[in-house]
Protein backbone atom coordinates (compact mmCIF):
# COMPACT_ATOMS: atom_id res chain seq x y z
CA UNK A 1 0.00 0.00 0.00
CA UNK A 2 1.27 3.39 -1.01
CA UNK A 3 -0.80 6.56 -0.38
CA UNK A 4 -4.03 5.94 1.55
CA UNK A 5 -6.05 8.93 0.37
CA UNK A 6 -6.15 10.93 -2.85
CA UNK A 7 -7.98 14.26 -2.73
CA UNK A 8 -8.55 16.62 -5.63
CA UNK A 9 -8.69 20.12 -4.23
CA UNK A 10 -11.02 22.58 -5.91
CA UNK A 11 -9.56 25.70 -4.30
CA UNK A 12 -6.31 26.75 -2.68
CA UNK A 13 -7.73 27.09 0.82
CA UNK A 14 -9.10 23.57 0.59
CA UNK A 15 -5.69 22.24 -0.41
CA UNK A 16 -3.96 24.09 2.44
CA UNK A 17 -6.52 22.81 4.96
CA UNK A 18 -6.00 19.22 3.82
CA UNK A 19 -2.20 19.57 4.15
CA UNK A 20 -2.49 21.30 7.50
CA UNK A 21 -4.70 18.56 8.95
CA UNK A 22 -2.36 15.86 7.62
CA UNK A 23 0.47 17.34 9.74
CA UNK A 24 3.29 16.51 7.38
CA UNK A 25 1.93 13.20 6.08
CA UNK A 26 0.23 14.85 3.10
CA UNK A 27 1.93 15.92 -0.10
CA UNK A 28 1.05 18.07 -3.08
CA UNK A 29 0.76 16.30 -6.42
CA UNK A 30 0.39 17.99 -9.81
CA UNK A 31 1.26 16.02 -12.99
CA UNK A 32 2.82 13.32 -10.81
CA UNK A 33 5.15 11.96 -13.49
CA UNK A 34 8.13 12.01 -11.12
CA UNK A 35 6.28 11.78 -7.82
CA UNK A 36 4.30 8.62 -8.62
CA UNK A 37 7.56 6.81 -9.39
CA UNK A 38 9.31 8.22 -6.31
CA UNK A 39 6.43 7.10 -4.11
CA UNK A 40 6.42 3.66 -5.74
CA UNK A 41 10.16 3.32 -5.12
CA UNK A 42 9.82 4.60 -1.55
CA UNK A 43 12.09 7.57 -2.22
CA UNK A 44 9.30 9.78 -0.93
CA UNK A 45 6.30 8.98 1.20
CA UNK A 46 2.80 10.32 1.66
CA UNK A 47 -0.36 9.08 3.31
CA UNK A 48 -2.41 11.73 1.55
CA UNK A 49 -1.94 13.17 -1.93
CA UNK A 50 -3.50 16.56 -2.59
CA UNK A 51 -3.99 17.10 -6.32
CA UNK A 52 -3.86 20.83 -7.09
CA UNK A 53 -4.33 20.67 -10.85
CA UNK A 54 -8.09 21.26 -10.63
CA UNK A 55 -7.69 24.61 -8.86
CA UNK A 56 -8.81 27.30 -11.33
CA UNK A 57 -6.46 30.00 -10.10
CA UNK A 58 -3.44 27.75 -10.82
CA UNK A 59 -4.35 27.22 -14.46
CA UNK A 60 -3.37 30.50 -16.14
CA UNK A 61 -0.42 31.47 -18.32
CA UNK A 62 -0.62 35.18 -19.06
CA UNK A 63 1.07 38.54 -19.21
CA UNK A 64 0.09 40.83 -16.38
CA UNK A 65 1.67 44.27 -16.42
CA UNK A 66 5.45 43.87 -16.40
CA UNK A 67 5.25 40.15 -15.54
CA UNK A 68 4.56 36.83 -17.14
CA UNK A 69 2.69 34.57 -14.73
CA UNK A 70 2.49 30.80 -15.03
CA UNK A 71 0.14 28.90 -12.74
CA UNK A 72 1.31 25.73 -11.01
CA UNK A 73 -1.06 23.56 -13.06
CA UNK A 74 0.27 24.73 -16.44
CA UNK A 75 1.79 21.83 -18.40
CA UNK A 76 4.90 21.76 -20.56
CA UNK A 77 2.71 21.19 -23.57
CA UNK A 78 0.77 24.37 -22.85
CA UNK A 79 3.96 26.37 -22.28
CA UNK A 80 5.68 24.99 -25.40
CA UNK A 81 2.65 25.95 -27.51
CA UNK A 82 2.06 29.33 -25.87
CA UNK A 83 2.08 32.22 -28.35
CA UNK A 84 2.98 34.60 -25.52
CA UNK A 85 6.08 32.60 -24.55
CA UNK A 86 7.14 31.99 -28.15
CA UNK A 87 6.92 35.72 -28.74
CA UNK A 88 8.43 37.07 -25.52
CA UNK A 89 10.44 34.28 -23.89
CA UNK A 90 11.13 31.73 -26.61
CA UNK A 91 13.85 30.12 -24.50
CA UNK A 92 11.21 28.80 -22.10
CA UNK A 93 8.89 27.50 -24.82
CA UNK A 94 11.88 25.74 -26.41
CA UNK A 95 13.01 24.16 -23.13
CA UNK A 96 9.48 23.01 -22.27
CA UNK A 97 9.24 21.34 -25.66
CA UNK A 98 12.21 19.12 -24.74
CA UNK A 99 10.99 17.76 -21.40
CA UNK A 100 10.35 14.00 -21.33
CA UNK A 101 8.08 12.84 -24.14
CA UNK A 102 4.83 14.22 -25.61
CA UNK A 103 2.85 12.08 -23.16
CA UNK A 104 4.87 13.46 -20.24
CA UNK A 105 4.56 17.05 -21.47
CA UNK A 106 0.79 16.63 -21.68
CA UNK A 107 0.50 16.28 -17.91
CA UNK A 108 3.79 17.28 -16.22
CA UNK A 109 3.86 20.89 -14.99
CA UNK A 110 6.59 23.55 -15.09
CA UNK A 111 6.21 23.92 -11.34
CA UNK A 112 6.85 20.21 -10.95
CA UNK A 113 9.95 20.57 -13.10
CA UNK A 114 11.22 23.09 -10.52
CA UNK A 115 10.05 21.29 -7.36
CA UNK A 116 11.51 17.94 -8.44
CA UNK A 117 14.81 19.82 -8.21
CA UNK A 118 16.85 18.07 -10.87
CA UNK A 119 19.77 20.12 -12.23
CA UNK A 120 19.04 18.92 -15.79
CA UNK A 121 15.43 20.16 -15.83
CA UNK A 122 14.71 21.62 -19.27
CA UNK A 123 12.08 24.09 -18.00
CA UNK A 124 13.89 25.13 -14.79
CA UNK A 125 17.10 26.06 -16.64
CA UNK A 126 15.40 28.70 -18.84
CA UNK A 127 13.35 29.87 -15.86
CA UNK A 128 16.64 30.43 -14.02
CA UNK A 129 17.97 32.57 -16.87
CA UNK A 130 14.70 34.52 -16.92
CA UNK A 131 15.14 35.32 -13.22
CA UNK A 132 11.91 33.60 -12.21
CA UNK A 133 10.48 33.43 -8.71
CA UNK A 134 7.87 31.20 -7.10
CA UNK A 135 4.88 32.16 -5.01
CA UNK A 136 4.66 29.73 -2.12
CA UNK A 137 1.60 29.63 0.12
CA UNK A 138 1.08 27.77 3.38
CA UNK A 139 -1.16 27.99 6.43
CA UNK A 140 1.48 30.37 7.83
CA UNK A 141 1.24 32.85 4.95
CA UNK A 142 2.75 33.61 1.61
CA UNK A 143 6.28 34.24 0.29
CA UNK A 144 8.11 34.71 -3.00
CA UNK A 145 11.16 32.51 -3.51
CA UNK A 146 13.75 33.34 -6.21
CA UNK A 147 14.25 30.23 -8.32
CA UNK A 148 17.92 29.99 -7.42
CA UNK A 149 16.94 29.71 -3.76
CA UNK A 150 14.34 27.00 -4.43
CA UNK A 151 16.95 24.21 -4.26
CA UNK A 152 18.51 22.39 -1.31
CA UNK A 153 20.43 19.86 -3.37
CA UNK A 154 20.04 17.36 -6.18
CA UNK A 155 16.41 16.21 -6.08
CA UNK A 156 15.77 18.26 -2.95
CA UNK A 157 13.57 21.32 -3.11
CA UNK A 158 13.51 24.16 -0.63
CA UNK A 159 9.72 24.11 -1.00
CA UNK A 160 8.13 21.75 1.53
CA UNK A 161 5.45 20.01 -0.53
CA UNK A 162 4.04 18.40 2.63
CA UNK A 163 2.98 21.80 3.99
CA UNK A 164 3.27 24.38 1.23
CA UNK A 165 1.65 24.87 -2.16
CA UNK A 166 3.75 26.60 -4.81
CA UNK A 167 1.03 28.37 -6.76
CA UNK A 168 2.71 30.45 -9.43
CA UNK A 169 5.92 31.16 -11.32
CA UNK A 170 6.54 34.70 -12.47
CA UNK A 171 9.31 36.56 -14.24
CA UNK A 172 9.69 40.03 -15.72
CA UNK A 173 8.79 40.24 -19.39
CA UNK A 174 12.12 40.38 -21.17
CA UNK A 175 10.92 43.24 -23.38
CA UNK A 176 11.46 44.26 -26.96
CA UNK A 177 15.28 44.55 -26.82
CA UNK A 178 15.78 41.02 -25.49
CA UNK A 179 16.91 37.92 -27.31
CA UNK A 180 16.69 34.47 -25.74
CA UNK A 181 17.79 31.04 -26.85
CA UNK A 182 17.88 27.47 -25.54
CA UNK A 183 20.46 24.82 -26.41
CA UNK A 184 20.70 21.16 -25.59
CA UNK A 185 23.08 18.23 -26.06
CA UNK A 186 21.73 14.72 -25.49
CA UNK A 187 22.46 11.22 -26.72
CA UNK A 188 19.27 11.16 -28.78
CA UNK A 189 17.00 13.88 -30.13
CA UNK A 190 14.06 12.65 -28.06
CA UNK A 191 13.37 10.95 -24.74
CA UNK A 192 16.92 11.43 -23.46
CA UNK A 193 18.01 13.47 -20.48
CA UNK A 194 20.45 16.20 -21.48
CA UNK A 195 24.20 15.85 -21.16
CA UNK A 196 24.13 19.64 -21.24
CA UNK A 197 21.42 22.23 -21.60
CA UNK A 198 21.54 25.98 -21.41
CA UNK A 199 19.49 29.13 -21.65
CA UNK A 200 20.85 32.51 -22.71
CA UNK A 201 19.06 35.85 -22.38
CA UNK A 202 20.69 38.99 -23.79
CA UNK A 203 19.58 42.61 -23.61
CA UNK A 204 21.19 44.96 -26.11
CA UNK A 205 20.99 48.65 -26.82
CA UNK A 206 19.79 48.52 -30.41
CA UNK A 207 20.50 45.70 -32.82
CA UNK A 208 24.26 46.12 -32.91
CA UNK A 209 24.92 48.08 -29.74
CA UNK A 210 26.42 47.13 -26.39
CA UNK A 211 25.13 44.22 -24.32
CA UNK A 212 23.43 45.81 -21.33
CA UNK A 213 22.71 42.58 -19.51
CA UNK A 214 23.43 38.89 -20.09
CA UNK A 215 22.08 35.90 -18.22
CA UNK A 216 23.32 32.39 -18.80
CA UNK A 217 21.88 29.34 -17.04
CA UNK A 218 23.38 25.89 -17.50
CA UNK A 219 22.40 22.37 -16.48
CA UNK A 220 23.29 19.74 -15.39
CA UNK A 221 26.74 21.06 -14.53
CA UNK A 222 26.23 21.74 -10.82
CA UNK A 223 23.85 20.58 -8.07
CA UNK A 224 21.16 22.95 -9.36
CA UNK A 225 20.52 25.00 -12.51
CA UNK A 226 23.65 27.13 -12.58
CA UNK A 227 24.10 30.83 -13.43
CA UNK A 228 27.44 31.44 -15.14
CA UNK A 229 27.97 34.86 -13.59
CA UNK A 230 31.58 35.40 -14.67
CA UNK A 231 30.59 34.76 -18.26
CA UNK A 232 27.60 37.09 -17.88
CA UNK A 233 29.83 39.89 -16.56
CA UNK A 234 32.32 39.35 -19.37
CA UNK A 235 29.57 39.70 -21.98
CA UNK A 236 28.27 42.95 -20.56
CA UNK A 237 30.38 45.05 -22.88
CA UNK A 238 30.44 47.80 -25.49
CA UNK A 239 32.56 45.90 -27.97
CA UNK A 240 30.98 42.67 -29.17
CA UNK A 241 33.66 40.63 -30.91
CA UNK A 242 34.24 36.97 -31.61
CA UNK A 243 37.04 37.02 -29.04
CA UNK A 244 34.65 38.32 -26.37
CA UNK A 245 32.18 35.49 -26.98
CA UNK A 246 34.92 32.90 -26.83
CA UNK A 247 36.23 34.38 -23.59
CA UNK A 248 32.75 34.31 -22.05
CA UNK A 249 32.30 30.66 -23.06
CA UNK A 250 35.74 29.81 -21.62
CA UNK A 251 34.79 31.46 -18.32
CA UNK A 252 31.47 29.57 -18.17
CA UNK A 253 33.25 26.25 -18.74
CA UNK A 254 35.60 27.15 -15.89
CA UNK A 255 33.01 28.24 -13.33
CA UNK A 256 30.64 25.28 -13.87
CA UNK A 257 31.36 22.18 -11.79
CA UNK A 258 30.47 19.11 -13.86
CA UNK A 259 31.73 15.77 -12.58
CA UNK A 260 32.94 12.78 -14.51
CA UNK A 261 29.87 10.61 -15.04
CA UNK A 262 29.29 7.28 -16.75
CA UNK A 263 26.10 8.70 -18.24
CA UNK A 264 27.19 12.18 -19.20
CA UNK A 265 30.88 11.82 -19.93
CA UNK A 266 34.11 13.03 -18.36
CA UNK A 267 34.50 16.35 -16.64
CA UNK A 268 36.85 17.48 -19.43
CA UNK A 269 34.35 16.54 -22.13
CA UNK A 270 31.52 18.30 -20.37
CA UNK A 271 33.55 21.50 -19.93
CA UNK A 272 34.54 21.35 -23.60
CA UNK A 273 30.89 21.00 -24.56
CA UNK A 274 29.89 24.00 -22.44
CA UNK A 275 32.51 26.05 -24.25
CA UNK A 276 31.48 24.79 -27.68
CA UNK A 277 27.71 25.10 -27.26
CA UNK A 278 27.87 28.47 -25.56
CA UNK A 279 30.19 29.93 -28.20
CA UNK A 280 27.95 28.62 -30.94
CA UNK A 281 24.77 29.91 -29.29
CA UNK A 282 26.19 33.37 -28.60
CA UNK A 283 27.59 33.52 -32.11
CA UNK A 284 24.15 32.79 -33.58
CA UNK A 285 22.35 35.17 -31.25
CA UNK A 286 24.72 38.05 -31.95
CA UNK A 287 24.96 37.34 -35.64
CA UNK A 288 28.72 37.76 -35.78
CA UNK A 289 30.60 36.61 -38.82
Amino acid sequence: MNWKRYERASDLNGALTLLDRAEGTGRVIAGGTDLVLQLGQRQKSAELLVDVTGIDELRGLCASGAWIRIGAAVTHREAAASGLLREEAAVLAEGCGMVGSPQIRNIATLMGNVITAQPAADAAVPLTALGAELRVVSAAGERWVPLEEAYRGVGESAIDATREVATEIRFRRPGAGAKTRFFRLARRKALALPVLNGAVCLWRDGDAGRIREARIALGPVAARPFRARQAEACLTSDRITAALLEEAARLAAGEATPRTSLIRGSEEYRRAMIRLYLTRTLWEMLDIG
Binding site: Y6, R8, G32, S101, Q103, I104, N106, I107
Partner: peptide, 28 residues
Protein backbone atom coordinates in the same frame (compact mmCIF):
# COMPACT_ATOMS: atom_id res chain seq x y z
CA UNK B 1 5.99 0.86 -15.80
CA UNK B 2 8.17 3.97 -15.46
CA UNK B 3 6.84 6.33 -18.10
CA UNK B 4 9.64 5.67 -20.56
CA UNK B 5 8.23 3.35 -23.23
CA UNK B 6 4.75 4.57 -24.16
CA UNK B 7 3.18 1.09 -24.37
CA UNK B 8 0.49 2.16 -21.88
CA UNK B 9 -0.58 5.25 -23.85
CA UNK B 10 -4.31 5.95 -23.62
CA UNK B 11 -6.24 9.03 -24.70
CA UNK B 12 -7.53 10.84 -21.64
CA UNK B 13 -9.80 13.84 -22.23
CA UNK B 14 -8.39 14.08 -25.74
CA UNK B 15 -4.68 13.86 -24.91
CA UNK B 16 -2.30 10.90 -25.11
CA UNK B 17 -1.09 10.12 -21.60
CA UNK B 18 0.76 7.30 -19.85
CA UNK B 19 -1.61 5.14 -17.80
CA UNK B 20 1.32 3.74 -15.77
CA UNK B 21 2.06 7.15 -14.18
CA UNK B 22 -1.49 8.24 -13.37
CA UNK B 23 -3.16 7.42 -10.07
CA UNK B 24 -6.58 6.03 -10.96
CA UNK B 25 -8.11 8.55 -8.57
CA UNK B 26 -6.63 11.36 -10.65
CA UNK B 27 -8.65 10.06 -13.60
CA UNK B 28 -11.93 10.11 -11.65
Amino acid sequence: GEGECGACTVILNGRPLLACLIPAAKAE
